[in-house]
Design a protein around this nucleic acid. Sequence first.
DNA 1: CATCCATATAGGCAGTTGCCTATATAATAA
DNA 2: TTATTATATAGGCAACTGCCTATATGGATG
Lengths: 113, 113
Amino acid sequence: MNKVEQILKILSDKNRLRIYKMLEAKRCCVCEIAYVLQIKQPSVSQHLKKMKDAGLIMSEQEGLWTNYYLTPTSQPYEKILLSVLSEWLGSDEIIQKDIEQIKSVDREMIPKE
Amino acid sequence: MNKVEQILKILSDKNRLRIYKMLEAKRCCVCEIAYVLQIKQPSVSQHLKKMKDAGLIMSEQEGLWTNYYLTPTSQPYEKILLSVLSEWLGSDEIIQKDIEQIKSVDREMIPKE
DNA sequence: CATCCATATAGGCAGTTGCCTATATAATAA
DNA sequence: TTATTATATAGGCAACTGCCTATATGGATG
């Protein structure tokens, strides 16, 4: 039950749901996500840390950038749960705009606060 | 997204997950749930209120007792999500004990504090 | 009516959350 | 090395959570 509870807790936050869907669309760095969510970079880092600790996402260094991406889950229940959530969220307007935006954003061009 | 978020938030609590599975097993009154969860009656009432506000459960008066039961959902995504969660939780030891206990408990015989 | 009983509500408290600003870290570039 | 840049971490703060105790509510019964 703890694993279920943990995943539900992690995903029961609007911004983390948005992050999840963005990472589904493409690998993202912290500043891209911060730009789309319109919150400060440290807040994004904290969300990503929680999601990473829960095993939902992973990261890879690319120079100065850290690219985050979804963990390819093999656990059947988790897999199904996430895909249902993903589909459900797919019909959300904000999510749709996020995906559009994250796909077109250029990480080199993001104004630095 | 708000609906998704709300449901995830409601279910991201261990005791509420246990309540959900108990109500799946049978209609329960507050004192039965309090007995199984080993928490005080007001705490159970509060959990139930939240779950009811989220539309997850409903209640019906039966004399002094209030019987709670799962809302028959027609919303497809919610339905699938809940059934996946339910299956996943079905393999949990604590949940299994809860179900056994809630099925055999006699509401007339619960020691009053 | 008055009492009893199951449940609901109010209020308090400690722990958690999500955001922020300030600062540290680590990789790159000059 | 020093400066720059992206990210991580620390610390603070207001809001929220889940539990408790005390009390209110309302149906059932004598």
